[in-house]
Amino acid sequence: MARADFYLIGKPRFREQPLLLVCELARRAVHSGQPLLVLAASMAQAEALDDLMWSFDPDEFLPHQVAGVEEDEDEVEVLIAPPEQSPPMRALVLNLRDAPVPAGFERVLEVVPADESARGPLRERWKHYQSLGLDLAKHDM
């Protein structure tokens, strides 16, 4: 059964730089051997995430790239897709966009902002995934 995991930003380092949480979740995916598709909200966000993944952990490289830049996208473990790119869906998807992820995944990860006033769209996505019958889980980060 498909599953949706919501990660609530709590720790100060994630509050200051929410994309660090995305890097942490990407590292977990790589360690578990699951190719990850990150749906970025904009090209600027995709590029910022690309830059951050280079410096995230000085002792470990996260294999990643932005979709549409190089040919071998199917091979890379973490593929970051700006809205203008539509790479094939992967089993594991991390969603940074405003809309819920369409079908085709086994597990979707959603990052919930620390700011309570910005959580409305995430509540809507929770209800959406719930209505599809997905297993839902919440994690405090």
Score class of each variant (00 low, 15 high):
4 A>N: 08
7 Y>F: 15
7 Y>A: 03
11 K>G: 01
11 K>E: 12
13 R>H: 04
14 F>D: 04
14 F>I: 04
18 P>Y: 12
18 P>T: 10
22 V>E: 01
23 C>T: 05
23 C>P: 07
26 A>Y: 09
27 R>T: 10
29 A>I: 01
29 A>F: 00
31 H>V: 11
40 A>V: 06
41 A>E: 14
43 M>N: 04
45 Q>Y: 00
47 E>W: 05
50 D>G: 00
52 L>H: 06
52 L>K: 02
55 S>T: 15
56 F>P: 04
58 P>L: 09
60 E>S: 11
61 F>A: 03
62 L>Q: 04
64 H>R: 05
65 Q>M: 14
65 Q>L: 06
66 V>S: 01
66 V>D: 01
67 A>R: 07
70 E>T: 09
72 D>S: 06
75 E>M: 07
76 V>H: 04
76 V>L: 02
76 V>T: 14
77 E>M: 15
77 E>G: 02
77 E>W: 11
78 V>F: 05
82 P>I: 03
85 Q>N: 09
89 M>Q: 15
93 V>Q: 08
96 L>H: 13
97 R>H: 08
97 R>P: 03
98 D>F: 00
104 G>V: 09
104 G>T: 10
109 L>F: 12
114 A>K: 01
122 L>S: 13
123 R>E: 10
125 R>N: 14
128 H>V: 10
130 Q>A: 13
131 S>M: 00
132 L>A: 14
133 G>R: 07
135 D>C: 05
136 L>E: 00
138 K>H: 13
140 D>F: 01
